[in-house]
């Protein structure tokens, strides 16, 4: 049962597309189970993406793209909130 994953580990990196659109990565993966974006700080977002990389079987490229999407989204949410307060 462990042969397939072990084989993948030993096979080394494949030449796959390095560029994944963060917006697509988020919508194609996260929105399959989550209905909306939760705003966290960048440090916490890092942790949560690590957790989801394991839970949702994300590739490293996908998780980096999702991280970028979430951090962008959090930054803009916070910016909007502070602008509204002002």
């Amino acid at each position: 049962m462990l042969t397939v994953p072990l084989g993948m580990a030993l096979a080394g990196p494949r030449k796959a597309s390095k560029f994944i659109d963060p917006d697509d990565a988020y919508k194609n993966n996260c929105m399959r189970c989550h209905s909306s974006v939760q705003a966290y700080s960048p440090k916490k977002t890092e942790t949560i993406v690590m957790h989801m990389r394991i839970r949702a079987n994300l590739t490293a490229q996908e998780s980096r793209a999702i991280l970028e999407y979430l951090q962008d989204n959090t930054a803009s949410t916070r910016k909007n909130k502070s602008a509204t307060k002002k």
Partner: peptide
Amino acid sequence: VPESSGKVPPI
């Protein structure tokens, strides 16, 4: 997508 993960340490 940057090659390395974010430079921010996760907490």
